[in-house]
């Protein structure tokens, strides 16, 4: 395995979509939605495919929803796969190996 390296995409995903969320009135917001990375992500979309942009937004909304309802805690590492986790779908790959 090659030496671990941190790429831009590793940082963007995390800095924009992760990190502690403060749910309080004292945080600047737009129409009640914390303005965290939304515009920035639109700006960065040009750096990647629109497909990814779409995926990230859907994913981001899911994470933020979970955070608001207090279910943001990661799964404990027990080796068991949480029921909510689905294996990957291989639609892209079908084209790749056909």
């Amino acid at each position: 395995m090659s030496r671990p390296q941190v790429g831009l995409v590793d940082l963007l995903d995390r800095v924009l979509d992760r990190g502690l969320l403060i749910n309080a009135d004292i945080i600047i917001s737009l129409a009640g939605v914390p303005l965290i990375g939304i515009n920035l992500r639109a700006a960065l979309a040009g750096m990647d495919t629109m497909v990814k942009y779409g995926l990230m937004q859907e994913w981001d909304n899911g994470i933020r929803e979970a955070a608001r309802s207090g279910h943001n805690m990661p799964a404990p590492a027990t080796g068991a796969l949480p029921a909510s986790v689905m294996p990957p779908r291989l639609e892209e790959g079908v084209a790749a190996w056909q």
Binding site: V15, L16, G19, L21, I22, I27, I28, I36, L40
Partner: peptide, 9 residues
Amino acid sequence: PLTFNTIIE
């Protein structure tokens, strides 16, 4: 770490 753009007013 806080999420990017967390600004307290």
